[in-house]
Structure formats: C-alpha cells, structure tokens
Design a protein around this nucleic acid. Structure first.
Lengths: 342, 342
DNA sequence: TTGTGCGATGGTATCGTTACCAAACTCGAC
DNA sequence: GTCGAGTTTGGTAACGATACCATCGCACAA
C-alpha cells in the first residue's frame, strides 16, 4: 500500500519501530517469536511490517556472533548436463529442509573459475561447500584456505585432499557391466570416455580394463578413445570406431555425453543403411529415451539426485551433527547394472 | 600454514591488521585497490592475509550504504527438467560476467514454496529476481512486497503483474507447427499439454487451436488432453489417445515432458507390434535423441540457455542500465519450427 | 628556515540487527 | 498499602567493514 519515494532504500527495523510506536528491540523480538511482547503490540508491529513491506536483513543478522548465513555454496562443472541439474536438485531439497539456501555456480570444467567461485562463496560466509571438482588442482580447497568451512566433494575425488567425498561405485559398475558384455560373447569391446583427469573417467576405465584382464582379454589401444567432453566429440569418436577395419562388437561408454554421441553415430549409419552389424552399447549414466533406440543397450544406472542429497546430508552432518570433527568419510553409492537384451 | 585453534572463527580485518602491524583501514585500502598505500606495506598486508586465510566478509560489506550484495535470486519450477538446467546456466553465465552470483531455488511448481523462496531472497538483499512463476498467484511478486527490487519473469507471464517478462513465441510456434501438420494432410490432430494454469501451456494451445480453426477444422474435445505434468502422466494420456476407436493421425505435444511420454507410449506399442499406424508427433521443446526415434517427428525448437541469458540481461539493464525506470518490457524470443519428414 | 602541498596512515562513526542489562510496570500475597 | 516476583519495554554496545575526516611526515619551493 505504500511506496514512498521512487528510489527508497529498503525499510529498516527502525522505521518499522517508529511506525508501530515501539522500540527497534520490540520489533526484533516480535519477529523472532514474540516472547515477552504483548499480543496487541505484536499486532501493531506486524501491521507496520506489512505496510512497509519490511524484510529482515539477513546479511546484517549474519554478522552477529553465533549467527550463521544459512547459505551452502555449490560448485558444479556443467549445468548443461541434465545429470547435474538433478544433482543440484538433490542438494537443494535437502538443504532447504534444514533451513539453508543453495548458492549455485557453474565452473564449466575450468579450474580457474572453480577457484574463483570457491573464494567468492567463502567471502559470502557460506556455512559449507559442495564441490564437483574439475580436477587438476586442489590448492583452493585445502583447509588452510577455507578456514573452518567444511567441504564435501561429490562425484569425483581429488588426490591430496582430505575431505568428505561421495562417489558412485564407478569401478564395480563398470566392471560388472563389462563382465556381462564379455559373458554375452563379446571379445572386441571399445571404450569411450571423457577427460582422463576426471576421476570418474579413470575409475570407470579401471573397472572396464579389470574385467577384460580377468577374462584374459587384452586392452586394445585402438579401441580406447578418451577425452570426449561433449556429444559432438563423442559422435566423432564413435564414427572412428565404426570405420575400423575390424570394428568392435560392443562399446563401453563412460558417461551420458559419450553414450548420446555414440547413439547418434549409430543411428545415422543405420538410417543410411551403412551399418552391417549394430554394435552393442554399454553406457554409464541414464539417458532419457535410450531404451527406445534400435540398439542393444546395457545401462549402468544411478540416481544423481540421490548423489546430491547424500552430499548435502554429509555436509549437514558436519554442520549440525555431533561428530563434526570425525575423520573424513568416503561414501560410494551403489549403481545398478541392467541386463543385456535377449 | 596456520590453523590456530580447532574451531577458530574466521579471521577479521582487525586480526590481519594486527599481524601486519597496521590499522584495519590500511588493510581495507590495500584490499580494495591499494590506492595511497606504500608498496612495502601492501606486501605485509597481503602476506598476513595469506597467512591467516582471510576473506573479506561480503555480508558485512553489503550492509554499508551504497554497497550492494551482488546476488541475483533465481526461482525456477523444476530443476529435474533439463530445460531448466540450461536456463539456469544461461542466467549464471550472464550474471557472472557482471560480477554477480546466482542464488538458485527450486519451487517444484508449488506456489507456497515460491513465495517462501522470494521472501528469503529479499531478506538476503538480492539485487534482483528472476522467476519462472508457477502461476496461480502474483501477490508475492507485487512491487509493494518487493520494495525496489526489480523482477524479471521468464518463460511464463503472470496476469495482473507489471514486470519485465521474457517469453518464447509460443503462440506462433504452435500455430506454425500445427499448420504444417495440417498442410501435410492430417485432419485428426490431438493435443497433449501440461497444467492449464501455466501460461506457456495455454499460449501453445491457443496457437494449436487457431491453426485448426483457420483450416476449418474443429477442436475435438476427445483429442485434447491437458494437465500432464510429468513423463509418466503423459505416457498414460498418449495411450488413451492410441486406444480411441478413431485415433489421431498426429499429436501436438506442448512440452518436452509430454513429448517423451508420448514417445514411450508409441515405442512400447511398436515393439509389441500393436500399432497399425504410427502417428506423427509434433512437439514443443527439444528432446535429446528424439531425432533418432522411429516416429515421424516435428520439433518446435528453441534455446533455453538463451532464454535465461536474455532474462539476466533484462534484469541487469534495470540494475546497471541508464533507463532503470522505463516501463516494463515484454520480449518474445523466436522459436524455430522444423520440417516434417518426407 | 619556514611554508605549502600531497601522500600515507589512523581514529571514529556508521550500516541493520540483536544480546545483554536496566528500568518500568503488572499482579497477587500479606 | 507494601513488597517481591515476573513480565514487558527500551537503551546501549557489538558484530565486520569502510567513508570520512584528521593527523603526520616528507619533499620541494621560496
């Protein structure tokens, strides 16, 4: 009902107090529960709050001793990947249940941006950090740099950094999926992966190669293509595999970007009638619609939302839990390996 | 190098000053550019900052007059939808370029949570808001409630709210796609849509029905199914259409959730060999892999990242631009309508 | 030598809020 | 009517950072 001047600053507790005819303290008390304030006075205060459109200044509150900001800083690598949208959702849901808010930044797989993000989060007095590390550097996450702010690493580990970490069971997922592919009779199984420096990529490669080795199969360098960070690069890599003199009969893809790229390459050749034998695709991460493709498919599936939720839970345990000083924990969430068709 | 006590509070400018043997003012000056501070003193200060792991408290800074928080509040409806991940990415990129940070909240299509989110953002002194409104209420976004904080509505408009708005060209996109479907010979074209209260849904329905009407076709209530908010509901709706005595030869789907659900329904029947005629699918929003499906498909595509970027640009124009008081603007971003196969 | 001007530095007050203490008031018991 | 206990209210200081003004010192010109 009231818009004083065109560029009035936000109203303060003082102005509310004046309008209600009380002291600022009474306003403050009313807004934090109303203990020891007469009901009639409370009503006057609340009316004044509504009339002025007053909101407590959380930043001012947060500089007072004992009070904290209620912010959780989240740095992820690629918001364009639906996987990380789900991850962020899981984080958001859990922290919101605990009265916190999420500040989200996107590093774009760039260590410099990640470092900047983290420094900014700290300056904003976040209570804790959840980071999907780009890898390639840990300096900016060391406790000496962060002071008392706890950090949880999600999805990827960082060497040389002691911190709570939540991962997927990458190694076993990749191992199990590759093993089932071998059991189905495949002998030439290729590998498509993202950047080697990313810990998920190397863990999944480890599972893949362990399964091959255990079955007495060699890891053929010709069939291992790594470093594809987006769908386009993955498609080109898959085309290279299809063009080999002796193409693989199955392909293990280490993440959903690579799976989608591979499906595009396969789909294009199918339509062109230029694919004598359709390779079996084994992919880590769920892909919407993948189950409808005309390609034999085995998915190692998991729930990124649960991953985010678990990271948030670990962080809140440090913040609110009793054992805030316990040693860093490592949690590996299970993945589920589907079944190959027929 | 230094971790005093197990639970030391974050160091303050005072402690840095003491360690460097200067006054807090000199520290402050050094950290904001170093004007009028001797180089040698600056170095001492910077050493002390590094030794203590000091970060300026942005919250304390932000309560000083003239200084603002650098935060942009973003409320979206469904982070699980890849579309909104891309949208958030567009926002983040643009605001980061302007030295701001994004605080992201997910409303889950719930007006109560949206209201709470917005109030919280205001309390945290965000400089501006970007909201994808759930619809069904505008009270919490009225200028009287927000004070001087500018708001940009994205993707969906809100009736009775004067605010900058950026939409897609929903009506024309739906009209054009429907028209091309009619031109291709289809006469029974169904409609699958999300909640009627969502403005995109009704705008796209408008375009659909206008195209039908102009072609002298009636909107058949039997063929219009609305209110499907997720993939599962959409699949069931599509199955109902397929079960009709006289099923549609084409289906217009108003968003990607409905498109994916419809593809699942169609795909399942195709595999079961229970689909005499595969209907043509016309869908708003891009869908990864949709182009590889064995279904005649026409996509009305657009770039959610550009939508987010545009919303951020409009907001920053209000904040930093010269014409901060100009009347609310409405921008409609173009969509691109593909071509029907053969 | 004295004066002038400028660069370097520190003291103080302030932003919005609330913890702490003191003061004023209410009510019932004697 | 007086006292004490409990409730309600307000004043003051402090959180961390910095704008503003005062002060100090130095170099150079007269």
């Amino acid at each position: 009902m009231s818009n004083d001047s065109p560029s009035a600053p936000a109203p303060t507790v003082r102005e509310v107090a004046q309008l209600a005819g009380v002291s600022p303290m009474t306003v403050s008390r009313t807004l934090s529960g109303g203990k020891n304030v007469r009901a009639e006075v409370q009503q006057r205060v609340l009316d004044a709050v509504a009339a002025l459109g007053y909101h407590r200044n959380e930043n001012a509150r947060s500089i007072r001793p004992g009070h904290s900001s209620g912010l959780i800083g989240v740095a992820i690598t690629n918001l364009a990947n639906p996987y990380y949208g789900q991850f962020a959702l899981g984080v958001e849901e859990v922290v919101a249940q605990h009265g916190r808010r999420m500040v989200l930044g996107n590093s774009g797989e760039d260590l410099g941006r990640e470092t900047q993000l983290v420094a900014d989060f700290v300056g904003r007095q976040v209570e804790g950090l959840i980071v999907v590390p780009t890898g390639g550097g840990a300096e900016h996450l060391q406790p000496a740099r962060l002071g008392q702010i706890p950090v949880v690493l999600a999805s990827r580990a960082v060497e040389g950094l002691e911190a709570d970490t939540v991962l997927l069971d990458d190694v076993n997922g990749a191992y199990e999926a590759t093993k089932r592919t071998i059991d189905a009779g495949h002998r030439r199984i290729a590998f498509l992966g993202n950047a080697v420096s990313v810990s998920t990529a190397s863990r999944r490669f480890d599972g893949y190669s362990r399964a091959l080795t255990e079955a007495g199969l060699a890891v053929d360098p010709e069939l291992v293509l790594r470093g594809q960070q987006d769908v386009h690069a993955a498609r080109i890599a898959m085309e290279r595999l299809l063009d080999l003199a002796d193409p693989p009969t199955a392909v293990f893809s280490a993440n959903n970007r690579n799976t989608i790229g591979a499906l595009h390459a396969i789909g294009a050749r199918q339509r062109a009638g230029a694919l004598p034998v359709t390779p079996t695709l084994v992919g880590f991460d769920d892909v919407e619609l993948a189950d409808l493709m005309q390609v034999p498919l085995l998915i190692v599936s998991h729930d990124p939302r649960a991953l985010g939720a678990e990271a948030a839970r670990m962080l809140l345990e440090r913040l609110d839990g009793p054992a805030a000083d316990s040693p860093p924990q490592l949690v590996e969430l299970p993945v589920s390996v589907g079944r190959l068709p027929e």
